[in-house]
Design a protein around this nucleic acid. Structure first.
Lengths: 255, 255
DNA sequence: CGGGATCTTGAGGATGCTCAACGCTAGTGG
DNA sequence: CCACTAGCGTTGAGCATCCTCAAGATCCCG
């Protein structure tokens, strides 16, 4: 789902108090990481952070690169540092349901299973931090705070999944698309960015498979929203929200 | 539409008057509990279990009793010890999406939020264990094992939610109902019970609101399955599965 | 510039919804 | 004990939303 973790407002971790200041770690790959506070790394200090660093590997992916595949042994978990990815499930005849889009700061593979319960694919260029799952599990036992953080992330994910069930089961095509756009907008707002200009990197087909619609219906609904002047389609897969209140009402089924 | 006049919540039975060692507690409410291994209590030993006991209260509910309500302060979490409950979200105009059914052993309120993200209602007679959420949260800090257990439960819930998204977004009415019945059957099997006889305590309307269908469509689909001899409807809200393999194929969209 | 992928638009059709009627059962009160 | 009622389940007829199939239009990347 469109992940909207609340912006961390409680301030950045005070590195100076920690046993090993961040700046003193040689070749620290996280030194320039923009999204530390958003990800699981944000809660950690000193040796906890160092321990996480030890099991971290950087990884890059390009458009359509498969990251994980449903049924494969779940050897790694990931943190998206830049770009976007999609999670999906397939049926035998090829029908696809995208269960979520992840953006920078989002965590992939929270479900602690031996096999991945879904597949994941890059949308455009993506940078990730990859963790060995077994080593991470060991870390969880050493640092309960890390596990607490994961539970918090999981709670978020469950709440979002329930919103998505309401959307898929009970909303009309227009309500679905408006909800999707509002979720993207809210995410921008949470990150302190302009909530009226959205970057929508995924294709119409992806959006359709996320909302339980066909590409044609997504396209038609976009056109209708455009014509009623609620949104505008801009260059480079960007969407401008003209009337956020109307969009919100449409998402909620309020005429 | 959804006529749910809030009946008054049935009385709470306060059983624990004092903290006494587990094995010496007279009328220990958990002593005869059939489902300890299924629930969060199962992982705990000795003083951990005692600590959980201290913040536990038994609660009963009857059909349609509201247990929690979306938006209310999340003061309690629950464990279902017998019976069934439904979780749901409502839209402004009354459209309802049931996000899950819970049965004995299931945990309600895992998402650690300040407000409940959904409502819950009893289906028939229900027995619950109720925990003060803030005290439970304190316990989590003392006993990491408890938090580990919750994370495992949350992981399960996320995987289930994703299956449900595939169902809601991409499956036909028949596939939906067959998937629902197979899920009930699998649950019976996991509990070591006959997977071909299902107890289906919820109404057609509930099933519809869970599967993103209307009551009429659920009823018609039941009739069709009955006519093709895949299932039989028995007395007392019971369903017999005649051809589990066919049912599974129908659930997966395999002709 | 060229060509494949993506997006848009149109026409027709099917799945599942709406509206309506009726039967069945259980609970209630005379 | 039975009539009455309310809720639930079933079935039917008609219809709306969204899907399918098809053809252009547009974009993008080499």
């Amino acid at each position: 789902m469109v992940s909207c973790q609340p912006k961390k407002v409680s301030g950045v971790v005070d590195i100076m108090e920690s046993a090993t200041p961040l700046s003193f770690i040689p070749d620290n790959p996280c030194a320039a990481c923009e999204i530390r506070e958003l990800s699981i790394c944000g809660t950690l200090q000193g040796d906890e952070f160092q321990a996480l660093l030890d099991i971290l590997r950087k990884q890059e992916a390009r458009n359509r690169d498969p990251l994980i595949s449903e049924g494969d042994p779940a050897d790694y978990v990931f943190n998206v540092t830049s770009g976007a990815i999609k999670l999906y499930k397939l049926m035998a005849d090829g029908r696809r349901q995208i269960t979520g889009f992840l953006f920078e700061g989002d965590f992939l593979g929270i479900a602690m299973y031996d096999e991945y319960p879904y597949s994941a694919e890059a949308i455009g260029r993506v940078n990730l931090c990859r963790f060995d799952r077994r080593k991470l599990r060991n870390l969880l036992e050493t640092f309960p705070k890390l596990e607490h953080r994961l539970l918090s992330i999981a709670s978020n994910e469950i709440a979002q999944a329930q919103d998505q069930m309401l959307l898929l089961g009970r909303k009309t095509a227009r309500e679905k698309l408006c909800s999707f756009l509002m979720a993207l907008s809210k995410r921008m707002e949470d990150r302190g960015r302009d909530p009226s200009i959205l970057f929508v990197p995924m294709s119409r087909a992806d959006i359709g498979d996320y909302l339980g619609l066909t590409t044609e219906t997504v396209s038609r609904t976009f056109t209708a929203l455009k014509r009623s002047n609620v949104i505008r389609l801009l260059e480079g897969n960007r969407v401008m929200i003209n009337e956020p209140d109307t969009l919100q009402d449409m998402a909620d089924g309020i005429d």
